[in-house]
């Protein structure tokens, strides 16, 4: 059974280098774990400020009862936004932040 291993910093580095496209199996398992749907958990969305140019990270509360709540984080690169969400989820699973940015 796959389980999270916070010593696998190689997977974080692989994701950072290449957030979209082909991933090695262990990274794909990790992404599936991080993105797994949970009806009780909030999830992230990106709200475009300028289409294709900049996005605000926002939080959707579970249950679809309210519109997304924007954070103050703005990204001008979709890959950087993905990396930020990855880091947030890593910290949640590991109980500590990734040792690199």
């Amino acid at each position: 059974m796959y389980s999270f291993d916070k010593s696998r910093l190689d997977l974080a580095r692989e994701f950072k280098a290449n957030p979209f496209g082909e991933h090695r199996p262990d990274l794909q398992y990790l992404l599936n774990l991080m993105r797994r749907p949970d009806p009780k958990r909030a999830h992230y969305v990106l709200m475009p400020r300028q289409w294709g140019e900049s996005w605000t990270l926002a939080v959707m509360e579970p249950g679809g009862v309210s519109p997304p709540r924007p954070t103050n984080l703005v990204f001008t690169d979709a890959g950087e936004a993905e990396w930020h969400v990855f880091k947030l989820r890593w910290a949640e699973l590991a109980g500590e932040e990734l040792p690199f940015d």
Binding site: R35, L46, M47, P48, E82
Partner: peptide, 12 residues
């Protein structure tokens, strides 16, 4: 996000 492999984009 699982099947799209990306954070979902959602505008106003």
């Amino acid at each position: 996000e699982v099947y799209q492999g990306r954070v979902t984009v959602m505008d106003e």
